[in-house]
Simulated assay, not measured.
Amino acid sequence: MATRAQSGESAASISKKPRTARGRATMRKLLDAAAKEFGEHGFHAASISGITRRAGTALGSFYTYFDSKEAIFSALVRDMSRAVAEAAAAAMPDGISGIERERDVTSAFLSFAREHKEIYRIIDEAEFVDPANYRAHYENAAGRIAARLDQAAHDGDIAPGDNEVRAWALMGMNVFLGMRFGAWDDSRNPAEIAAVIERLLRNGIAPPHRSGT
């Protein structure tokens, strides 16, 4: 499965974009350390010194790429959004479409949530710390899902319908499944949970038709 964007280049402002492999590696360390710091302490209690200590970098290195705690938090939200998109893309091999593709994306997201449990605290706090990127995170994810559903409907792999509504419903389902079976409790097999979702998408929850009724 893909992990968070390896270079981290686009997480910085244009003026502070790293120009060398060493710079990109340093930014990656800072973003990974920030995920741990914010995930453990929350935005307000987290500190720049805590981030640099976790990253094993000098305080000056932080300010080479980020102007403030708010700046690295916003960069981290965008970075995590890209990571979710990469994880979903990696779960969609050629030849898989429609319901099977959504099943595999669900399984991939559950695995991602287990590896990056801090994403729930960070994204939740973004609603108040960085509302623009908070909204973009969900709107971009819903847009990707809707595009998949549009293509699946065009190919005849799912029934036609309002794919914007469907996309938000699928996204909400995956978010809370990841919370319950990823961040809170990772004892169940992601493939088993994804199979339940596949059956839900195929058959709904209405009782089977009974002959003679």
Results as ranks from 00 to 15, higher is better:
Arg188Leu: 15
Arg166Cys: 00
Glu40Ala: 06
Ile99Ala: 04
Ala21Trp: 08
Asn189Glu: 15
Ser7Tyr: 12
Phe181Tyr: 15
Asp185Gly: 03
Ala146Val: 09
Ser81Leu: 13
Val196Phe: 11
Asp32Tyr: 13
Arg180Leu: 15
Gly161Ile: 00
Val196Arg: 13
Arg210Phe: 06
Asp79Ser: 06
Ala34His: 04
Ala2Asn: 11
Val165Gln: 14
His209Pro: 08
Leu177Val: 07
Arg54His: 15
Glu115Ser: 14
Arg180Ile: 13
Tyr134Gln: 10
Ala153His: 05
Thr64Glu: 07
His116Thr: 14
Pro160Lys: 00
Glu102Arg: 04
Ile158Cys: 00
Ala195Gly: 08
Arg144His: 09
Leu200Lys: 10
Leu200Ser: 09
Phe112Met: 09
Gly212Thr: 06
Trp184Phe: 13
Ser49Phe: 13
Ile51His: 08
Asp162Thr: 01
Pro160Ala: 02
Ala195Tyr: 14
Asp104His: 11
Asp79Thr: 02
Leu59Lys: 14
Arg188Ala: 15
Tyr134Cys: 08
Ala83Cys: 10
Pro208Ser: 11
Ser107Phe: 04
Gly156Asp: 05
Arg82Cys: 08
Arg4Ala: 12
Ala167Pro: 00
Gly50Ile: 01
Gly182Phe: 09
Ala108Phe: 04
Glu9Ile: 07
Val105Thr: 12
Ser10Met: 14
Arg22Asn: 12
Ala142Ser: 05
Pro208Val: 10
Ala5Trp: 15
Asp185Tyr: 15
Gln6Trp: 13
Ala108Pro: 12
Thr64Asp: 03
Glu125Pro: 06
Ala195Lys: 11
Asp67Tyr: 12
Ala142Met: 07
Val84Gln: 08
Ala25Met: 03
Lys117Asn: 05
Arg53Tyr: 08
Asp157Ile: 03
His137Glu: 04
Tyr63Asn: 00
Arg144Tyr: 07
Val77Tyr: 14
Phe112Pro: 03
Ile122Gly: 00
Asn189Ala: 14
Tyr65Val: 01
Met179Leu: 15
Asp150Gly: 01
Glu198Pro: 05
Gly172Glu: 12
Leu177Asn: 01
